[in-house]
Computed example of a mutant assay.
Amino acid sequence: MTPQEYVEEVLALVERIPPGRVMSYGAVADALAETSGRASARLIGNIMSRHGSAVPWYRVVSSAGRLPPGHETRAQALLRAEGCPLKGDGVDMRAAAWYPDTSR
């Protein structure tokens, strides 16, 4: 898988996250690891920062539920509008975490 194909796969997966649910950067990387050969949460953060504006970027958070750095207020408002379970300044990961099934 080329780097551009990987970017496209990441964005396609983020588009599939249901409203009111989230995935961590690491979960996105893990979900694509077998087919891509890549498994870096940091790379997912990079991709979201550079290419994620056209997808629901605010549905990708840290594994602790922290919202995207520098966009916390906007992300929280968008997630709240979707009915996402929030906890403190972030997301309640136990209630909101989503992982795709492997059948597309």
Score class of each variant (00 low, 15 high):
residue 1 M to K: 11
residue 2 T to H: 12
residue 2 T to G: 14
residue 3 P to R: 14
residue 3 P to G: 09
residue 5 E to L: 15
residue 5 E to Y: 10
residue 6 Y to W: 11
residue 8 E to P: 02
residue 8 E to F: 05
residue 9 E to S: 04
residue 9 E to N: 04
residue 9 E to L: 09
residue 10 V to W: 00
residue 11 L to Y: 02
residue 11 L to A: 04
residue 12 A to R: 13
residue 13 L to M: 11
residue 13 L to W: 09
residue 13 L to V: 12
residue 15 E to H: 06
residue 15 E to M: 08
residue 16 R to C: 08
residue 19 P to V: 05
residue 19 P to I: 01
residue 19 P to E: 15
residue 19 P to Y: 00
residue 20 G to I: 00
residue 20 G to D: 04
residue 21 R to N: 12
residue 21 R to P: 10
residue 23 M to V: 10
residue 23 M to D: 04
residue 24 S to I: 05
residue 24 S to E: 05
residue 25 Y to I: 04
residue 25 Y to P: 01
residue 25 Y to Q: 01
residue 26 G to H: 01
residue 26 G to C: 06
residue 27 A to W: 00
residue 28 V to Q: 07
residue 28 V to T: 08
residue 28 V to W: 07
residue 29 A to Q: 10
residue 29 A to T: 13
residue 30 D to C: 06
residue 30 D to G: 06
residue 31 A to Y: 05
residue 33 A to V: 11
residue 33 A to R: 15
residue 33 A to Y: 13
residue 34 E to D: 15
residue 34 E to W: 13
residue 35 T to A: 12
residue 35 T to C: 05
residue 35 T to N: 03
residue 35 T to E: 13
residue 39 A to I: 10
residue 39 A to V: 11
residue 40 S to T: 13
residue 40 S to M: 14
residue 40 S to G: 13
residue 42 R to H: 09
residue 43 L to T: 11
residue 44 I to E: 01
residue 44 I to F: 00
residue 45 G to I: 10
residue 45 G to W: 15
residue 47 I to G: 02
residue 47 I to M: 07
residue 47 I to W: 04
residue 47 I to R: 00
residue 48 M to E: 12
residue 48 M to A: 13
residue 50 R to T: 11
residue 51 H to C: 13
residue 51 H to V: 15
residue 52 G to F: 00
residue 52 G to D: 05
residue 54 A to F: 09
residue 56 P to H: 09
residue 56 P to E: 09
residue 57 W to G: 04
residue 57 W to N: 04
residue 58 Y to P: 04
residue 59 R to D: 08
residue 60 V to Q: 03
residue 60 V to I: 08
residue 61 V to M: 12
residue 61 V to A: 07
residue 63 S to N: 06
residue 64 A to V: 02
residue 65 G to N: 00
residue 66 R to S: 12
residue 67 L to T: 00
residue 68 P to L: 12
residue 69 P to N: 01
residue 70 G to L: 06
residue 71 H to Y: 06
residue 72 E to T: 04
residue 72 E to H: 04
residue 74 R to F: 03
residue 75 A to D: 04
residue 75 A to H: 00
residue 76 Q to S: 10
residue 76 Q to A: 10
residue 77 A to Y: 06
residue 78 L to V: 02
residue 82 E to Q: 14
residue 82 E to S: 10
residue 85 P to H: 07
residue 85 P to Q: 08
residue 85 P to E: 09
residue 87 K to P: 05
residue 88 G to R: 01
residue 89 D to E: 15
residue 90 G to Y: 08
residue 90 G to V: 14
residue 90 G to P: 13
residue 91 V to D: 00
residue 91 V to Y: 01
residue 92 D to S: 14
residue 92 D to Y: 09
residue 92 D to I: 06
residue 92 D to V: 09
residue 93 M to S: 03
residue 93 M to E: 03
residue 97 A to G: 00
residue 97 A to K: 03
residue 97 A to D: 02
residue 98 W to N: 01
residue 98 W to T: 01
residue 99 Y to D: 07
residue 99 Y to S: 15
residue 99 Y to C: 08
residue 100 P to N: 07
residue 100 P to A: 08
residue 100 P to E: 06
residue 101 D to H: 08
residue 102 T to K: 12
residue 102 T to F: 14
residue 102 T to E: 12
residue 103 S to F: 14
residue 103 S to D: 12
residue 103 S to Q: 14
residue 103 S to Y: 10
residue 103 S to T: 11
residue 104 R to I: 03
residue 104 R to M: 05
